[in-house]
């Protein structure tokens, strides 16, 4: 249990790793939007552009391609299901054989649906592979900053997020310890799903009570270290913008613009 690493961060000092996390999140969203925008008669070109983009991003991130592809494994069922539904229910185009229910267009469409999902997941997992959870929390804080205008407690929200991330390994360690303690008292964690679920109760209750105690102590420690909310607070970590962010911004912008233009040609 102790070896569980949270998230799938792949440490490196690559171009993509060094980008500003807020920009990275923003550009990932832009890319995903781009993937969904691909349509019209030139979709081959649109998809090709997206595939090239994600491959270039993977190479500059110096993440092994199999790590990115691994994330697809988790959603393979979803991909296949969408593709199969498309094959059976899309009635456009001409049947592949006489009186057949599978059309040529349906086959192509199902292929592209699968490709679309895979491209989105690859982009998203590239973000989590190159950005540590803490950076994601920091990036989110920056991106949510406009919500301060409507009195949304952005600073508190980000602090809660980063403290939660900080405590995941600690709580996993504690879970491990409680399981061992209960096993030492004769508790069994093997058996069917109901038995297993029931066996978890004597683990979860001490864990929950322990977390409350921890929260209490943490609050005291934070108070002792002069924490008094976001007022007059400075920040040590400054996430500056570098040439990396500018270049990525231009390239991603180019991709989205290209996709829109390719669609537009047909619409006009």
């Amino acid at each position: 249990m102790k070896d569980v690493t949270f998230g799938q961060y792949y440490p490196s000092h690559s171009f993509v790793h060094k980008m500003n996390p807020a920009i990275k999140i923003l550009l990932t969203i832009a890319y995903i939007v781009g993937v969904f925008l691909v349509s019209g008669d030139n979709y081959y070109a649109g998809f090709l552009a997206c595939v090239v983009f994600v491959l270039i991003a993977t190479i500059t991130a110096r993440v092994p391609i199999f790590r990115v592809l691994k994330s697809i494994k988790a959603i393979i069922f979803f991909v296949l299901l969408s593709a199969i539904l498309q094959i059976f229910f899309n009635k456009d185009g001409t049947p592949l054989w006489e009186n057949g229910f599978i059309t040529d267009k349906a086959l192509i469409a199902s292929g592209f649906i699968a490709l679309r999902i895979i491209l989105v997941v690859m982009g998203a997992s590239l973000l989590t592979l190159t950005t540590s959870p803490v950076e994601i929390a920091d990036g989110t804080e920056v991106l949510l900053a406009p919500l301060k205008l409507v009195k949304f407690p952005v600073h508190e929200f980000a602090l809660i997020m980063s403290i939660a991330l900080r405590f995941i390994p600690t709580l996993l360690e504690e879970t491990d310890r409680i399981i061992k303690a209960q096993q030492a008292r004769g508790a069994e964690f093997e058996g069917g799903i109901f038995k297993k679920a029931k066996a978890m109760i004597p683990v979860l209750i001490p864990l929950l009570i322990g977390s409350f105690r921890r929260a209490d102590e943490l609050a005291d420690a934070m108070d002792s270290r002069c924490y008094s909310g976001s007022k007059n607070r400075t920040k040590y970590k400054k996430m500056g913008l570098t040439y990396r962010d500018a270049i990525s911004f231009i390239i991603t912008g180019g991709l989205v613009a290209g996709v829109v233009l390719l669609n537009g040609v047909v619409i006009l």
Partner: peptide
Amino acid sequence: DNQLVASIVEDDVAFGPENLG
């Protein structure tokens, strides 16, 4: 374990001075 607020050492040490502005 219950006193550290950040996942990186320097960020944690920075917490107090940050609070002081």
